[in-house]
Design a protein around this nucleic acid. Sequence first.
DNA 1: ATAGTGACTTTAC
DNA 2: GGTAAAGCCACTA
Length: 120
Amino acid sequence: MSPRPAPKGRAVSEAEALQDARVQRILATVDSIPPGRVASYGQVAEEAGLPRAARFVGTVLRRFVADRGVPWHRVLGSDGTIRVTGGTARDQAKLLREEGVTVRKGRVRMADSGWRPEED
DNA sequence: ATAGTGACTTTAC
DNA sequence: GGTAAAGCCACTA
């Protein structure tokens, strides 16, 4: 039969990407951000064991935001700015406000709403 | 293997 | 307070 079904690191499709350990850790980390709190892409990357892979975190969220209960809206730029492009940005601000997060001029005060994994 | 790309971050002006 | 450029990681073609 076919003995080569599993490419090790890279994914070749979304289904396989979801099985990728890196993607799993990223999604799990995002999922652990408590409501009313926000984290930066870099922070998520670090928590997921992929330091400096902030861009990858953005890519993952962009591709897998379709369904699953991942609170993607709680991830912002390092300075609390909404980095999402397109009309999605408005949805993100809306979702955050619904959680009690103050969004002003497309950005959030990280000092107030920033997630501290240590405190949780 | 090389080049292009991005929902990033940091530094410099 | 902004904008610009370089550095980063991992994916995609």
